[in-house]
Simulated scan of single mutants.
Amino acid sequence: MKNLKLKICGMKDPENISEVVKLQPDYMGFIFYEKTPRYFDAEIPEIPSAIKKTGVFVNEEIDVILEKIKKHDLNAIQLHGDESAAFCAELKTLLMETPLEIIKVFSVKDNFDFNRLEEYEAVVDYFLFDTKGQNKGGNGITFNWEILKKYPSEKPFFLSGGIGPEEVEEIKKLKAYFQQNGKENLLYAIDVNSKFEEKPGFKNVEKLEKFVKWF
């Protein structure tokens, strides 16, 4: 869909990564969190500069984040834990000389207090809404997207949480809602992961290829 980016997250196997790269997603996510089966501890194979390498962190120390950015030449970082606005502000200051994007994740179920976003407005580039579940991402279930119609911010966001081919029509409806209300750029990107996996960290390229054609 026009003006909608795609992020493929939870990449792990180098050969699988190289195959997924051919689909030219806008973002590719690597999870640097040891408590997930998608934990990435390899070398990232060569990736075209048009694809933004995104490091996913959960309550990690700033020094570790900076080390991973340097090691893997990351283009974006996704903070998937309980990181405070002050933490994000410090990180943003340290990264001031680099064109690196900061994405802050918020977990959602049936409702959400959007007032929580206010203190993050000036210190992150995007918000990401994921499903609140047992795991820090990759739960394979969607949340109630209707609450996003109450989204008060002007900051673009990523939509995540159990998104697969079955959700395409609902994504179209949500995108159309924002377009009709003069806010077509708020729904910035779709973030997919577990619905396209053969096993944790290994994506079904054929299934992804069909999904990518929709974009």
Rank of each mutant, 00 (worst) to 15 (best):
D191C: 04
K172N: 02
F112W: 09
E83L: 08
C9H: 07
T142W: 00
K207E: 03
Q180D: 12
D73R: 12
V58Y: 10
L117E: 10
K52N: 07
D130L: 11
V108M: 09
F129A: 05
G29T: 03
P45T: 02
I103C: 04
V124W: 07
N185V: 00
D26R: 04
P152A: 01
W214L: 06
L94N: 08
E154Q: 13
T131I: 04
E83K: 13
K136H: 09
A176P: 11
K12P: 10
E97K: 15
I69S: 12
N115W: 02
A86T: 14
A176K: 15
Q179S: 15
I69D: 15
T142M: 01
E118W: 00
L95K: 08
F143W: 06
G138I: 02
K53L: 02
N111K: 14
L208Q: 10
I171L: 07
K70R: 12
D13A: 09
F127Y: 15
P37K: 04
K210D: 08
F32R: 08
L174M: 13
E101V: 03
I31F: 07
K5M: 06
D130C: 08
S194R: 14
D13E: 15
K175N: 11
V105G: 08
E19V: 05
S49F: 01
V20M: 06
I77E: 07
